[in-house]
Simulated assay, not measured.
Amino acid sequence: MAITAKWRQHIEAWQRSGLSQAEYCAAQQLNLRTFTARLSDYRKLPKLDSTALIPVQIKPAAAEAIVFTHAQGHRLELPASMPASWLAELLRCLA
Rank of each mutant, 00 (worst) to 15 (best):
A5E: 14
R8L: 07
R8Q: 11
E12Y: 04
I11C: 12
H74L: 05
L91Y: 01
L90I: 03
A22K: 10
E12D: 04
M82S: 12
I66D: 05
Q9D: 11
R43W: 02
T69A: 15
P55E: 15
I3R: 07
P46A: 15
L53T: 08
S81Q: 13
A26L: 04
K59P: 01
A65W: 10
S20L: 04
V56M: 15
R75Y: 00
S50I: 09
A26N: 08
L87N: 04
H70R: 05
T4H: 00
A22C: 01
I3C: 05
A52F: 01
A2F: 04
C93D: 09
L53I: 08
K44V: 00
A71F: 00
A13W: 03
Q28R: 14
E23F: 03
R33K: 08
S40A: 15
A37I: 03
K47T: 11
C93K: 15
A5T: 13
R16H: 07
S17P: 09
C93L: 15
Y24G: 11
L39H: 08
Q29T: 10
L45I: 04
L53H: 07
K6R: 11
K59M: 06
Q57G: 05
Q29N: 14
E77S: 15
Q29E: 13
P55Q: 13
R43F: 07
A62I: 01
A84T: 10
A37Y: 09
W86G: 00
